[in-house]
Design a protein around this nucleic acid. Structure first.
Lengths: 137, 137
DNA sequence: CTACCACCTGTACCATACTACGGAGTCAAG
DNA sequence: CTTGACTCCGTAGTATGGTACAGGTGGTAG
């Protein structure tokens, strides 16, 4: 069975070497066996694991959440519904963030509409609004 | 002219004392004059400044951006259009974040649809997809 | 006059996700 | 056998926006 050095693993997974070690410390990948020199010898499967992490990260999961996701897989007690629950919670998180951004944007759009773009900055209605806004947008 | 201690300022602006000092270090508020004891003596206006910072933060500006916004006001060269430009850039940032979140959400929704919620976690289509997704959502 | 609270400085710490660096040991090619 | 690339470990730094001490002084109410 072939094993990979940390450099090969990092290259194949498209991450940095330091990142691989960092993920090991964070418990996202298993500590691999070492050769007599202390070099890490990885099975091929660690590349898949790293790709899993990258994809989950792209979906907005934090490293801690990804760790949980990975441990769900190992626990025979865990059901598919548990996993689905995580995904749904994450969807709700994302929706909340989007609502927040939408509110910010609406306020900013209002402010830019109020500003003709002429005149000196100290008369700018945008800055004036920031001085006197009462309620949260 | 009345002055305020840091505690009063923090209380009126609805932030922590440490936050006021932190903003001073970050250059968001001026270093106030000190009494013989070394106590900070703030003018009332600093409360307005802190409220400005809070509102701008609510609109999604970072502390560095807020610092720039504040300095724009002081520079007589700056025009209203410069301020408007900042706001528009921030709107574009927000829109980009929203697009990113929308993509994440769509992928997650797809995944949850593929999962019936029955069965053990190691057969979960969500986890399987994370193992084998090829393209970014 | 003595509590007791507010304030001072500086430093360290929280979470998040890495990235960089120094100094030493290892492996493979030429 | 030497050279250069690779790896090891531990620590520290990046950015973001604060929060939490410790240890010491100031101000004021009773």
């Amino acid at each position: 069975m072939t094993t990979l050095t940390i450099g090969k693993v990092a290259q194949r997974a498209g991450v940095g070497i330091e990142t691989v070690r960092f993920y090991e410390r964070r418990g996202l990948i298993d500590e691999p066996p070492r050769g007599p020199s202390g070099y890490r010898h990885y099975p091929e499967s660690v590349v898949l694991r790293l790709l899993f992490v990258r994809r989950a990260k792209d979906l907005g999961f934090t490293l801690n959440e990804i760790k949980e996701l990975l441990s769900l897989r190992l626990d025979p007690q865990t059901t598919c519904a548990d996993v689905k629950q995580r995904a749904e919670t994450k969807i709700a998180d994302i929706e909340e963030k989007m609502r927040s951004l939408r509110r910010m944007k609406q306020s900013l759009v209002q402010l830019t509409k109020s500003c003709s773009g002429n005149g000196p900055a100290n008369d700018c209605p945008i800055l004036e609004s920031l001085d006197s806004l009462e309620q949260k947008p």
